[in-house]
Simulated scan of single mutants.
Amino acid sequence: MARPPRFDTDQILDAAVRLAASAGPSGVTVSAVAQAIGAPSGSMYHRFAGRTALLAEVWLRTVERFQAGYFDALHSDPDPRRAARAAARHVVSWSRAHPQEASLLLHGAGEFGRADWSEEHVRRADFGHERVYASLGTLAASLGVTGRQGRERIALALVDLPLSVVRRHLRAGEPLPPHAEDLAEECTAALLYTA
């Protein structure tokens, strides 16, 4: 009877997240992750074809977990303005609850080697991206916001502003202030009020 694997995929990816948060994407190597969890490097290749696959999986798992909560928030209320405020709060509250993962996402997929990802990894990334922008488009339509400028306003209100509340503190290695969710929500509400 074969022994169960000593390290599961989530343990490996958790270690990769910690390395990315402390040293950036360049710190995530197969040998560094193996060393961080006390696994032989060879065992890593049973789950990941190489560093590129490891980087893709750590990025995708993180962004997909974030997006799951973001979509829930966007669909949390039939009133589009309240749903938008909930989504803005989610960006901050998720980042507060998962500071290492949030720090990782500040780098962007390009720094995690997206140009070399497999077709499946690229498809997963594109699917998530398209879902976000489709949801923002639906929200814009429900608010009566049209045209390129209107779409820019929605993206600014629900993506860029909440991220800016988070980014400065994460990059400085500081905890988010207690009022950060309120600030993100207020900024989003103010921008949407004029939409």
Rank of each mutant, 00 (worst) to 15 (best):
M1P: 15
M1K: 12
A2F: 13
A2L: 14
R3A: 06
R3M: 01
P4A: 11
P5S: 08
R6Q: 07
R6H: 06
F7E: 03
D10A: 15
Q11A: 13
I12S: 01
I12E: 01
I12P: 05
A15C: 05
A21T: 01
G24V: 03
P25D: 08
P25M: 09
S26D: 11
G27Q: 11
V28C: 02
V28S: 05
V28G: 03
V33P: 06
V33W: 01
Q35D: 13
Q35Y: 06
A39P: 10
A39L: 05
H46S: 05
H46D: 03
H46N: 04
H46W: 03
R47I: 04
R47D: 04
F48Q: 08
F48H: 10
T52H: 10
L55S: 02
A56M: 12
E57I: 06
W59N: 09
W59V: 07
L60C: 09
R61M: 02
E64C: 00
R65H: 08
R65N: 06
R65S: 07
A68C: 03
G69S: 07
Y70Q: 14
F71V: 04
H75R: 04
S76V: 01
R81H: 12
R82G: 08
R82T: 14
A88T: 01
R89D: 06
V91S: 00
V91E: 01
S95P: 09
R96Y: 03
A97M: 01
A97N: 03
H98Y: 00
H98S: 02
H98D: 00
H98E: 02
H98T: 00
P99K: 12
Q100A: 15
E101W: 10
A102P: 03
A102I: 04
L104S: 01
A109R: 15
A109S: 15
G110A: 05
E111T: 12
F112K: 10
E120H: 10
E120G: 11
A125F: 12
D126V: 13
F127C: 07
G128Q: 01
H129K: 13
H129R: 15
E130P: 07
R131Y: 03
R131M: 07
V132Q: 11
V132L: 13
V132W: 11
A134H: 11
L136D: 10
G137H: 12
A140P: 12
A141Q: 11
A141Y: 07
V145Y: 15
G147N: 14
Q149L: 10
Q149Y: 08
Q149F: 07
R151N: 15
L158N: 14
L158M: 14
V159M: 11
D160P: 03
L163M: 10
L163D: 11
R167D: 03
R168D: 05
R171T: 04
E174M: 14
E174H: 15
L176S: 04
L176Q: 04
P178L: 01
P178F: 03
P178D: 00
H179I: 05
E181G: 12
E186W: 05
A190K: 06
Y193A: 04
Y193S: 06
A195Y: 08
A195V: 11
